[in-house]
């Protein structure tokens, strides 16, 4: 009984700390940019031009559907973000469809790593953004999609391979003595065993994909839809409030994506005993 009460109390305290720290963050932001107006030092760096949190949110809400703002970015943050979001989902999905089987093959087949390891290890350190020129050349307006795919692909491949490589041989043997063929071994032992690792790869990949889409859009689709392109356009027309509003949107969507993957992970992998319980 007392333990439960303590747990309840602790839970509330966790929430409290979260809220307080977030409010403190907003307060510091607010004080910094409003205070900058009376500090020549900070003004020199144009800190006072950065919107306070409330102004940024106001700009975000006001522009969300794209009404009442100048003609260059009349389509609004909402639609631009949605476009980026779709790009990330499609790029991520392609990366999963290709990356998971390749990772499985590299991990499971005897000469898998010999065949694919070197190629992957040489391509992987090239940042997705370094591919932008080539991507624009080949894929034109679909360049950001390709960049997202690259960002997602390597973490998914590598984590899948690593997950497969560490499969417990005891379980493989147990399955064999129960009559499993190699097809069964893959589908009923190797894949479930590697799943946590695959999901980790997916989460890292999605994060990198979301980060690269913004940069790719800034360079790749200047006039089209996309939150990266949007931010670049409002910046060049001097609307810093909307730049920050766009950044908030990026952060918020990234947070949502991570949250939903963590949620799926908890549902999917409830058989794992973890520190978090």
């Amino acid at each position: 009984m007392t333990y439960e009460k303590d747990a309840e109390k602790e839970k509330r305290f966790h929430l409290l700390v979260k809220i307080i720290s977030f409010l403190a963050f907003l307060l510091i932001w607010h004080l910094l940019v409003t205070g900058a107006e009376s500090s020549p030092f900070l003004m020199q760096y144009r800190i006072h031009e950065i919107p306070a949190p409330f102004e940024a949110v106001q700009a975000l809400v006001g522009n969300f559907l794209g009404r009442g703002i100048g003609s260059t970015y009349e389509r609004g943050i909402g639609l631009n973000s949605l476009m980026s979001f779709i790009r990330v989902l499609v790029g991520f999905a392609i990366a999963c469809v290709l990356g998971i089987p390749i990772g499985l093959a590299m991990g499971y087949l005897k000469y898998g790593v010999d065949a694919g390891g070197t190629i992957v290890e040489i391509l992987r350190p090239i940042p997705p953004l370094a591919w932008i020129p080539i991507a624009i050349m080949i894929f034109r307006e679909n360049a950001p999609l390709f960049i997202v795919f690259l960002g997602c692909f390597f973490p998914i491949v590598l984590n899948t391979t690593a997950g497969v490589k560490c499969v417990d041989m005891k379980l493989m043997e147990a399955a064999k003595t129960l009559g499993a063929s190699s097809r069964h071994l893959v589908s009923k032992v190797v894949m479930p065993w590697a799943l946590p690792s695959v999901v980790t790869g997916m989460r890292i990949g999605l994060g990198i994909g979301w980060m690269s889409v913004v940069a790719a859009e800034m360079v790749g689709v200047k006039r089209g839809l996309g939150i990266g392109a949007f931010i670049w356009r409002v910046y060049t027309s001097g609307n810093i409030d909307l730049v920050v509003a766009g950044m908030i949107m990026i952060g918020f969507i990234g947070w949502l994506m991570n949250f939903s993957i963590e949620f799926t992970e908890r549902k999917l992998l409830k058989w794992r005993r973890t520190i978090g319980g």
Binding site: W193, W271, R272
Partner: peptide, 15 residues
């Protein structure tokens, strides 16, 4: 499957 094996480490599938 005609020979059932029981291991020291029970080797159960954790999932």
């Amino acid at each position: 499957p005609d020979r059932g094996m029981v291991f020291q480490d029970p080797a159960l599938f954790p999932w």
